[in-house]
Structure formats: structure tokens, C-alpha cells
Design a protein around this nucleic acid. Sequence first.
DNA 1: TGAACAAATCAGAATAATTCTTATATAATA
DNA 2: TATTATATAAGAATTATTCTGATTTGTTCA
Lengths: 147, 147
Amino acid sequence: MQTKALNKQKEPLELFREKCRERGISITPQRVAIYSVLIGNQAHPSAETIYNRVKITFPDISIDTIYRTLSTFSNMGLVDEVEGYGEVKRYDPELKQHHHFRCKKCNKIVDFHEKSFDNLKIPKAIKEKFSVSNIKVVAEGLCDECL
Amino acid sequence: MQTKALNKQKEPLELFREKCRERGISITPQRVAIYSVLIGNQAHPSAETIYNRVKITFPDISIDTIYRTLSTFSNMGLVDEVEGYGEVKRYDPELKQHHHFRCKKCNKIVDFHEKSFDNLKIPKAIKEKFSVSNIKVVAEGLCDECL
DNA sequence: TGAACAAATCAGAATAATTCTTATATAATA
DNA sequence: TATTATATAAGAATTATTCTGATTTGTTCA
Ligand SMILES: [Mn+2]
Ligand SMILES: [Mn+2]
Ligand SMILES: [Zn+2]
Ligand SMILES: [Zn+2]
């Protein structure tokens, strides 16, 4: 169990390094620190939130590096940007297909998985005209805390 | 046919006036002008876009009024804010349940209707904890022009 | 191991979208 | 028509994000 817990941290970081090498992208301490904060983070954090977390172990990091790095990660397919309503950008390290509940009041976003949503049939009219690469369901309402 | 075309403009505006009266919200020329631009607009326009259109007939309107009014309309349930990725806010006057295709490159948003998406079953775990008021499907990819 | 060089970072300035402030104007009401 | 609460315009302020330019660092390969 303990071994497993340790591996959990080791494994994704090694995969991260590999992906960087593949793409010819430098493995910098900043990038490792940012990626480490993202691993397993289910809160869909903003750049600011990530910045504050990273600063604990990396006090001199600049907010610009956070933004640039998240953009790089997004281009590499290491994180997704999350749908929102014109508030701040938020990022999602969960790459497996999944769906979101969003609280209209506090903007909390909660993941959920639902197999029956993973193969929804988009209407022909759309499919014929555009190339659809991913489909997701967004449920909205009020969360437990806001109710 | 001509009569119908004329009525198309008249009807929603009268409904608009009624809704304002119900809510005790003043019917100002600015609000009418902004609402008129929204009627039947399927492009999910931004505040800036709406501003430019309204200015044609209302040159002295201020951008702040556009934002304030759209926020008022949103609170009244006259428009929805559209999901996006941290770009500018966009608004949707279509209130019937529908779904979106979004181009990842040019951010074009296209409505589609699909009955089978209108009663998706959200997992118990979510439904039990939160109150879900609406569910939508977002398909993403590249539009015809960007392909 | 240690140049060489492209890439990445930092700090702070710049930009852009949105909101706020305040003085003035106006819609609703009686 | 006078009263009053609400809405507006203009421009300042704020905030998130991006850009710029000087400096540092990771990677490569001799
Ligand atoms: Mn997620
Ligand atoms: Mn729409
Ligand atoms: Zn909430
Ligand atoms: Zn496009």
C-alpha cells in the first residue's frame, strides 16, 4: 500500500519527462513543479491557484511562467482547458473522457464518469459539415454547499 | 409572407416588454435596441459585437450599458451566457434546450437540436448531492472553414 | 566535462475585457 | 406635470492574461 502510494507520484512524473523528451521540450524545475501540482488535482484549478501552490516550494516562480507552462502543457495534450463563462481560465489534468457538473453560484466543477455519455450520436448535419473531436456533457445547477 | 416577416420582429419585442413589466424593469430605448439585436441572432455574439451593431442605430450608447444590460437580461432569463474557454463572454438568446458545436480554432459556435440529448440521465451520485437545473452537450472540433 | 546555443524564465510593462464611480438623464407613477 | 427610483454615459479602475527584453538554464555534442 505504501509502495503504491509512493509510485503514484513517481509514475506520472516519469511519464511527464518522457512526453517532454518526445516533443523536444526542456524538463525544467518549474515545469516539474507545476506538473506536480496538477497531478491528481480534481479541483480544476486556475493559474492563480496553481501559482500559489507552486510558490510554496518554488518561491521565485513568476505568474507568467505559470501561464506559459499551462499553455505549453495544453498544446502537448497534458492538460485541458475547462469550459467556463468568461471567468478565469481553469485547467484539467484528467485526460480520460469524462463530464462535468458546474455550480452556477460558486463555479465549483465536479467530474463525473458515465459510460452512456461517451458515445453520444451527434446529428448528421453537424457531423457532415464539421470534424468533431470530442463531446462532453455539462450539467449545471447548485452544489451542496450553495444550496 | 411579408406580414409574417414583420410580425417576427413585433412579437418578441412585445414579449420582451411584458417580461420587463413583470419584473418591474424599465423599458428603455437602449434595452430595446440591444434586445432587437439579439432577436434571432444565432452567432452567440460578444458584448463588443453587440455594441457595434447597436451603435449603428444608437451611436451614443456606451459599452458599459451593453454589459450591464446583458447582465440584466441574463438575470431575467432573457439570454444565457455561453460556455467558453476564458475568451470574451458570449450570449445566447435561444432559450429552448439545445446543444453546441464549437470550433476549437475560430471559436464559432453552432446550435444543434437533438431530442435524444434532452433527457440524459445524470449519475445518481451527482443528482443526489447537487441540484441540476440544466444539461447540455458540447461537441468540439474544427468547423468547415477551418478544416 | 564544458563550451555553445536555443529555449525558458523573470520582472515588469502593456493590453484587453469587464466593472465601478459619479454626475446627469429618464421612465414610471400618481 | 412633479416626484423618485432607476438607468445611462463617460471615463477611471480593476483584473486576467500576454508581451518584451534582459538574463539564465537545459541540452547537445565535441
Ligand atoms: Mn474534469
Ligand atoms: Mn446556442
Ligand atoms: Zn456552489
Ligand atoms: Zn472554425
